[in-house]
Amino acid sequence: MPTPTQLCPCGSQKELANCCQPIHQVPTRAQHPEQLMRARYSAHVLGLVDFVVATYHPSCEAEQYREAIADSVHSQWLGLEVISSEIADNGEGFVEFKAYYQDGEEEFCLHERSRFLREPAGNEMQWYYIDGEYPHQPNEVPEATVSVSTVPAVSDKVGRNDPCPCGSGKKYKKCCG
């Protein structure tokens, strides 16, 4: 259980109780997609599987992937870097970020541009995570030569949010999945 003066894991330098924790309690409190993305990252650090599942867009049918989501949540998360966030003219929200985690002795970086939709949730509006893409940087060093990979750890099975093995740069669920 977090202490009252614990800093929020999202890296905001605010106390958890004044940052992501209120959104964990009531997701409609996120007024910007970046707030929801930070709360989802913090939920990973704090082991809040129910929150992560509940903040996927209903079309993602996250409940049927609860076990894989729980595996992701229970990784060792090391830090978050928000690169940019915006709400487009069409109302979609976008947040580009890098989330760092450790698997065994190796550290990895999940670099994603996430897309969020704001839709009714009861009597209020709520941001939901819908999907994301793995951006390619023009001067990025090829993955084989960097110590921190830009893709999640590889396992025997491809996770629905992992990069597609075909190399398209899309998530597996939006490509070959």
Rank of each mutant, 00 (worst) to 15 (best):
N161Y: 06
G167I: 06
E124T: 03
K173V: 07
V154T: 15
V148G: 02
A121G: 00
G159C: 09
S149G: 04
Y172N: 12
K174W: 07
D131T: 10
P152C: 09
G177Y: 11
N139M: 09
E119T: 04
K174G: 05
R160Y: 09
N123Y: 02
T150G: 14
Q126M: 06
W127T: 02
G177R: 08
S149N: 11
V146C: 09
Q126C: 05
K170H: 07
D162M: 09
Q126G: 03
I130K: 07
S155L: 12
K173W: 04
V146D: 10
E124G: 01
G177T: 09
C164W: 07
G132V: 01
E119W: 00
E140Y: 00
Y128I: 02
A121M: 00
E119N: 01
N123D: 10
Q137T: 13
G169Y: 01
Y128Q: 02
E143F: 08
S147K: 13
D162P: 06
P135N: 09
G167S: 07
P120D: 02
K171V: 02
K157F: 09
Q126K: 05
V146A: 14
T150W: 11
Y129A: 04
P135Q: 08
E140A: 15
Y128G: 04
G122S: 05
P135C: 03
E143K: 11
R160P: 00
A153C: 07
C166M: 12
E124K: 15
S149P: 00
E124H: 05
C166V: 14
G169I: 06
E133T: 13
K170E: 08
E143D: 15
P120E: 07
I130W: 02
G132P: 02
V146R: 15
V146P: 01
Y134W: 11
P142L: 13
V158G: 02
A153I: 01
G122Q: 04
D162R: 03
R160V: 10
M125A: 10
Y134K: 00
V151H: 09
C175N: 10
Y128W: 14
E119G: 01
E133D: 13
R118V: 05
T145A: 11
K170Q: 14
V141M: 11
E133W: 04
P165R: 07
P120Q: 12
A144Q: 14
D156R: 09
S149A: 13
D131H: 07
V141K: 12
C176N: 08
K170P: 02
T145W: 12
Y134S: 02
N123P: 01
D131W: 01
D156Q: 14
S147L: 10
A121S: 01
S149T: 11
V158I: 15
N123C: 05
C164K: 13
G169K: 03
P163A: 05
Y134T: 09
K171I: 03
K171M: 11
I130P: 02
P163V: 08
E143Q: 14
N161H: 14
T150H: 15
N161S: 14
E140V: 03
S149K: 15
R118P: 00
Y129Q: 04
K171R: 15
G177M: 08
N161M: 13
Y134V: 14
C166E: 11
E124N: 04
Y134L: 15
Y134N: 03
S149W: 06
